[in-house]
Design a protein around this nucleic acid. Structure first.
Lengths: 200, 200
DNA sequence: CGCTGCATGTAACTCGTTACATGATTAA
DNA sequence: TTAATCATGTAACGAGTTACATGCAGCG
């Protein structure tokens, strides 16, 4: 079983969905930490079906094919529960912005400053988006059941918790970009002055 | 040109290296945010050579083949400088721990608590390692040139800056894991009490 | 005498991305 | 009428992983 398979079981843990629904879920909010292409999803759903972890009922869809609504089987729910508590396999980190920073000495400081400011802004926009989603989750059904999404018994607590991480880690990243932008300004200034103070 | 190609140019930006040297660099410290398998590196070096971005001199190696020491050409240095200031292509995020958190409602709270505590410890160990590297970089040649690695003119400033990000963002992650572990404890307690307080 | 480190490469495979293909309904 | 949304699938390619293969030098 691939991680993608488990990711699909994860999207189905709160109720049945069509493949198309899953494609959309792979964007917001789950898409911020796990993504899959639509071309990966349909074959993987077929594999999960063959393994007996999901099942579907089909009705007439809008196009030439049937629409299938998938749900977890008992076996699927068990497989998911077992996987959730296992330590995650270490993944190779790929962070282009940090890679570029490693080789920063090879770049023009003024242009690099522009790079960092642009990145800071992009992350700020994403942070604003997360904050809006966070507030939205907390306000929704705030009174109907006497529980909010920050209560671990709330069915949306998992989604809420993922937003909490983003809200805690994005500001650190933005501050890092701004710090680097400042350092680039310093570099431009320092380059026009004698490199080393004369030794006495 | 693939990102891997630029990653190799990045490792060469401070001086010539053999393929084997690059394999090792792809672990510490650069390996914390960009990794490549040894089987990827050798063919990519050949491609970069063919494109004229690097060149090498060969001498008798220990094994049956020649040892090649690669360096950036002027064209390679220019290509690197141009790439560094370009906005990074958006990458699909894959974070298994966060994915698992999304589907947390399907897990056993007590076992999930163990998962979060184990993750917190693993990240704490990596943070300690980063802190040691950070201190090491700052103490090295602290007097010889009157500059430390936190001076943007220092050749190691790039490597230093990448560690700064880790030092700023890992604590947020560890705190998040600990917060979730606590929530899992709460869940265990709350489950044994009436689900909803009686409405008056 | 076997293990680790140095050093370079290839082969087979899996995972992920881009692009193609079909077709109904609804909104601009 | 043109585009977007719903809905499901396949094909070709590229990137990344695991495993294989060779062979010298030095250490315990």
């Amino acid at each position: 079983m691939s991680t993608l398979g488990y990711a699909l079981l994860c999207t189905l843990h709160r109720g049945p969905l069509t493949g198309y629904d899953i494609v959309r879920r792979m964007r917001k909010p789950i898409g911020y930490y796990w993504t899959a292409q639509q071309s990966q999803i349909y074959p993987e759903l077929a594999r999960l079906s063959a393994a007996g972890l999901i099942e579907h009922e089909a009705d007439a869809g809008p196009g030439p094919r049937q629409r299938k609504t998938h749900r977890l089987t008992d076996a699927g729910r068990e497989a998911l529960a077992a996987w959730l508590v296992e330590p995650p396999a270490p993944r190779a980190p790929r962070d282009e912005a940090v890679l570029k920073t490693y080789a920063l000495a090879a770049a023009d400081p003024e242009r690099m400053r522009g790079f960092y400011l642009a990145e800071a802004e992009a992350y700020q926009r994403r942070l604003d988006d997360f904050r809006a989603q966070h507030a939205d989750l907390l306000s929704r059904d705030a009174d109907n059941p006497p529980r909010r999404a920050d209560d671990p018994r709330h069915p949306q607590f998992g989604a809420y918790a993922t937003l909490e991480l983003a809200l805690a880690s994005f500001p650190a990243r933005i501050a890092w970009y701004r710090w680097l932008a400042e350092k680039m300004t310093d570099l431009g200034r320092l380059r026009n002055t004698p490199t080393d103070p004369p030794t006495p």
